[in-house]
Nucleic acid binder design. Sequence first.
DNA 1: GGGTGGCGATACCTCCCGGATATCGGTCCA
DNA 2: TGGACCGATATCCGGGAGGTATCGCCACCC
Lengths: 282, 282
Amino acid sequence: METRELRYFVAVAEELHFGRAAQRLGIAQPPLSRAIRQLERRLGVTLLERTSRSVTLTEAGSVLLVEGRAALDAVDAADRRTRRAALASTGRPALVLVTKAGAAGELLPKLLDAYAAEPGAVTVDVLLCGVGEQERLLRDGRADVALLHLPFDSTTGLDTEELRTEGQVVVLPAGHPLARRAHLRMADVAALPGLPMPRWPSSDGTYPDGPGPQVRDHAQLLQLIALGRASAILPESCRVHLRRDLAAVPVLDAPAVTTVIAWPPHSRSLALAGLVRAATRL
Amino acid sequence: METRELRYFVAVAEELHFGRAAQRLGIAQPPLSRAIRQLERRLGVTLLERTSRSVTLTEAGSVLLVEGRAALDAVDAADRRTRRAALASTGRPALVLVTKAGAAGELLPKLLDAYAAEPGAVTVDVLLCGVGEQERLLRDGRADVALLHLPFDSTTGLDTEELRTEGQVVVLPAGHPLARRAHLRMADVAALPGLPMPRWPSSDGTYPDGPGPQVRDHAQLLQLIALGRASAILPESCRVHLRRDLAAVPVLDAPAVTTVIAWPPHSRSLALAGLVRAATRL
DNA sequence: GGGTGGCGATACCTCCCGGATATCGGTCCA
DNA sequence: TGGACCGATATCCGGGAGGTATCGCCACCC
């Protein structure tokens, strides 16, 4: 199976439409049809059910969609990491650390400082991304290491090291009646009248149904809370950079949040090892 | 990057010899040279240093060797799992469980029985393999799930669930003076005169230096112990199928061995989920 | 109910690229 | 110094990936 065939199949499986997929791939529709047919013949498996009105995935097709994406990510990762390794040996090597924008509190600067003080430390480029994107960035080689927050982020397929565990706070508009309380419980904040929890996008980019505004990042979220349109439960480290117009109250029985440093398995980079070591020593 | 190019590069990087690599790939040497050169040009990276007498990997080349193998495994996995998914929907679906030959004791039959009793259980094919091969089999799609033993097996890049933890015993020839002791300590068995610990192959198939015979599987190992040429520390569950001419004595301070059930991340199979559930309920 | 438009399949052509053979050039060694 | 080894280069050939034109099928609709 060639990566070209995989790319073609993934495009068709995502669009469920040969014409649009061909357009997305920058080729004409007939060669695409032929390539998919050839892939099916070589695998001996029907991947798509086509009528002249619709294209649907078979059971095997869904498997190939998931597995094919993973394989393409692995190929991309090989490409990117090879280029970066070449840069590293002929220029200034660098690590790319990715974390959710607005998260990680004061842990990140501490980590960067601690690592920078190590002998042989390399540049660390910090990449801020949206919720749920980190795993993808690690898997396809755009990032080397991530700061994740359990239980929100998935760490499947990654090596991790726990850094610290903290409680959570509910973030409210500064003037809210509950904002002056010393602490709260989940029951108190589960159904705050007029302040629903926001909805975050799923991995496919769509939003689940429900009340609450749609948000894409922390800045949006905090803005909405300040406007009195939402509330949110966040790790208590978010307090250090909270806006003046927001208040945070500890939620005693909220699940604890563990910050972990995560990296793709089989990483062999000395620089990465140094960064992880610095992180665990914090 | 196409998988063909990756396969070619991995072959050359492993052989460090264009002629032999070409032979292994079943093509002539000139197109292979050209393909590698083209890959280097497209990446903008020198992967191999060639003289007319030797070929060596650059730093970037070593990275691509590791990453490329992982990517090729992922592509193979996509291929195999797709074929199997097609079989599963048109015939009798099956799971492939892999474990070290001779390991897993009575846990494996228990697990198979418990799972078979579940509604909707599918056939479970058991694959026995050599030490250290399981991870590879999972990654390239030849197996769906494995029983591993911590801390011996690596679980990087896999999802796992712990099944049980047990102590270890030292396995000795039946007539050995220490064989009648009720228990021993690591210090007692660390340097048994004439009974060195065996050497297992590394992931690249070579054996580390040292005393002790080279072994490839448990049958070989037990044979050697019976012959009075070696001893070994194994999980105590090995006692249930120990040969008559061998004795096992608990080693109180040996590290505990944890048996885990492991599977590749992003697996979506219902059958696998059922098997894991059955395993955790044991 | 026939026209129409959308969509995947088919037919056919072109040209690039992957493969083969022959040969060159450099390096080590007898 | 000549021969053996090994990777690079030159050159040719065939398959296949990509394109355009067109067909066949079906849903929808006036």
